[in-house]
Computed example of a mutant assay.
Amino acid sequence: MDAMKIVALPLLITLMQSPVCLSVTVSTSKPKVEVHEHTDAVLSCEFRTEKDQSPRIEWKKRGKGVTFVYYDQKFNGPYEGRAKIEGATLTIHSVTQKDSGEYRCEVTASKDHVNLGEVIVTLNVLVPPHVPSCEVPGSVFVGAGLDLQCKDKLSVPPATYRWFKDNKALTATPDTPYSIDSNKGTLKFKSVSKTDAGMYRCESSNNVGAPKSCVAQQLKVTEYPLNMTVLIAGAAGILTLTLLCCICVCVCRRRGCCKKNKKTKSTKSYNPPPPPPPPIRNLKHYKQTQSFMI
């Protein structure tokens, strides 16, 4: 027993002489917060200090850069006048999609041995569906391909889409002449027929608010006019004839049928030489028979 006291006494003295590690601790009861647009968002931040009773509290938003939300005991930028702080818990009033992101609560206790503690809270602002933009052409020819587009870029989470024809929901099956992508909002026809004409509209939804629909638009399906058909047929015939002529010329050249004869007759005109002058007659010796005296 005495031996144990002898061993424990130096250990106790060592513990009493060693410095006590005093530190600030920061935590949150809800690291991920989801609220609807235009409501209040409460970002929880609790702290405990060992010695410092008046720590410095800061809130920052992390994004492409760092935005100071609460600094030097006041709110900054877009948070001024629309936020409050209780202890270290931050409340943002009437949030919008721009408020979504990561927020960092920092508590600095200068009198503690470890004087900085922090915690991150993620805010996600949910946005109900908006009226989608619908692209429906006024008319299309029979047999043509067709893509109808529907987009809602503002809803969070991203919307899913449904298409309606004459107020009846369309459901794609292997037997239908169209296909639907509910995530991209496309309605595709490989080959339009006259029965596909009607009033088309699109509806977006994301389970945050009520679905929203665009105004129905009329789609007309018409046949090609006769003159257009004749024009297309004539153009196709001319193209085919031109192609055949080109093929024939190429084949002829390869077989040597179209080579020019190297020996060609001269095409220069022949001009005969001028006729020779008339022959000079032989003069007889002239004998003087009479002399004249002047």
Rank of each mutant, 00 (worst) to 15 (best):
I6K: 14
P276N: 08
V114S: 09
T25Q: 12
A8M: 13
V249N: 07
P137M: 12
V66N: 05
E118G: 01
V26C: 03
T176A: 03
K212W: 01
G234D: 08
C202R: 07
K284N: 11
R162H: 02
I247Q: 03
D181R: 04
S179K: 15
T222A: 11
Y103N: 03
E223M: 10
W59D: 02
C45T: 09
W59N: 03
A210V: 09
L241A: 14
R254I: 06
M199L: 15
K30C: 04
N115W: 14
I232M: 13
S204K: 00
G87Q: 11
G117F: 07
Q149T: 08
G145K: 15
T240F: 14
R104N: 11
I232P: 00
M228D: 13
V249E: 12
T67N: 02
G237L: 15
F292N: 04
N227G: 06
C258R: 10
K98T: 04
V33L: 07
R48H: 14
P174N: 03
L9I: 08
T176G: 02
Y200F: 12
P211G: 07
M228H: 14
T91E: 13
Q17L: 15
K84F: 12
Y161V: 06
M293E: 09
P128F: 02
T176C: 04
Y200S: 04
T171E: 14
P19Y: 10
P174S: 01
A83E: 05
S179I: 05
L11N: 00
G138V: 04
K32A: 07
R48Y: 05
